[in-house]
Computed example of a mutant assay.
Amino acid sequence: MAAMVGGAALKTVMSTAVNSQIRGYKERRAEAKSQVDWEDYNYPPYLRVLHYNLDDVEDANAKFAVRIANINYLMACSTFCVNCFGTFVLACGGLKLKGVHLIYAIFNLIIYSIVGMYAFYKAYKGLATKNGRLTDYYLGLQVLFIIFFLVASIVSGANYYGWTNVKRASDSDKLSGFWVFWTFFESALWTIDYLVGGWALYLVAKNKTDKIGGLLGF
C-alpha cells in the first residue's frame, strides 16, 4: 500500500515537473518567434526596469486592450499620488493622526506602483506573445485592484476619503471646506479608476489567447 502511494506521489511530482518544463519551453519559443527585444528596458521613463512598446502587439484589438490597461495603471498611480497630497495638506492643517496616515498613503503608492506595473506588464507581454498564461496573472491581480478602487471610493477612515467621508469632513473643525471638496474630488477619481479598470479587465480577457501550444503541435 505504501509503495502504491509513494509511486502515485512520484508520478504526480514528475508530471508537474514535465508540464512546467513544457510551459517554459513554449514561452521561450513564443518570445523568440515574436522577435521582440525584451531586454530593451525602456519603461517607465527614466527608471527603465522593463520593456514596453505598444507596436509589439500585432493584433489591433489586443493593442487597444493593452493601451487601456496602461492608461488605467497610470490613472490609478496618479490617484494614489493625489491621495498622498491631500493627506499631506490635512496633516499640515493639524488634523489628528494625518501624519501617520500620510505614511500609509505613501506605502500604498509604492506598493501599487510596483505590483500594478507587474500586472500591466503581464497583460502586455501575454497579448504580445499570445500567451494566455501570462495574461492570467494580470486578470487575477486586476480583479483585486478593482475591488480596492471600489472600496476606496466609498469608505471613510485613515487616509481614504470615499463618498461616505463627506459627513466626517463637514463636521471637522479644521480645513472643513477643503476636506469636503477633496472628498468629492478623490472619490470621483477612485470611481473612474474602477470603471476604467473593469473595462481594461474585460478587454484583456476578451483578447486573451494561448496559441503557444500550436508551435509544438499540442
Rank of each mutant, 00 (worst) to 15 (best):
M1R: 13
M1Q: 12
M4W: 05
M4E: 14
M4G: 00
M4D: 12
V5G: 00
V5H: 13
G7P: 09
A8M: 08
A8G: 13
L10R: 14
L10Q: 13
K11T: 14
T12Y: 07
V13Y: 12
M14P: 00
M14G: 00
M14A: 15
A17R: 08
A17W: 01
N19K: 09
N19V: 00
Q21G: 06
I22R: 07
G24Q: 09
Y25H: 12
E27R: 02
E27G: 01
R28M: 09
R29N: 05
A30R: 05
A30I: 12
A32C: 08
D37G: 00
E39F: 06
Y43N: 09
P44F: 02
P45E: 05
L47N: 02
V49C: 07
L50A: 09
D56E: 10
V57A: 05
A62F: 08
K63E: 13
A65E: 08
A69N: 08
N70S: 03
N70K: 09
I71L: 10
N72S: 12
Y73S: 04
L74D: 01
M75V: 06
M75I: 07
V82E: 10
C84T: 02
G86T: 04
G86R: 03
T87D: 03
C92L: 14
C92K: 14
G93I: 06
G93M: 15
G94W: 13
L97P: 01
L97A: 10
K98D: 12
G99D: 12
V100D: 11
H101N: 13
A105K: 01
I106H: 05
F107Q: 10
I110W: 13
I114Q: 12
V115P: 01
G116P: 04
M117F: 08
Y118D: 03
A119R: 00
K122G: 00
A123V: 01
K125R: 12
T129V: 13
K130T: 11
N131G: 04
N131L: 06
T135R: 00
T135L: 00
D136E: 06
Y137N: 07
L139A: 04
Q142N: 13
V143F: 14
L144E: 05
L144S: 10
F145N: 08
I147M: 13
F148I: 10
F149S: 11
S153Y: 09
I154Y: 08
I154E: 02
V155K: 01
G157F: 02
A158M: 03
A158L: 11
Y160K: 03
Y160L: 03
Y161Q: 07
G162S: 07
G162Y: 09
G162M: 07
N165R: 11
R168K: 14
A169F: 04
A169S: 12
A169I: 06
A169L: 03
D171R: 08
S172I: 13
K174V: 15
L175C: 15
W179D: 15
F181G: 15
F185W: 13
E186Y: 00
S187Q: 04
S187G: 14
A188C: 06
T191I: 07
I192K: 01
Y194T: 10
Y194W: 15
L195K: 11
G197I: 06
G198L: 12
A200R: 01
A200D: 12
Y202M: 06
K208I: 01
K208Y: 10
D210E: 14
K211E: 15
K211S: 15
G214V: 01
L215G: 11
L215T: 04
G217T: 07
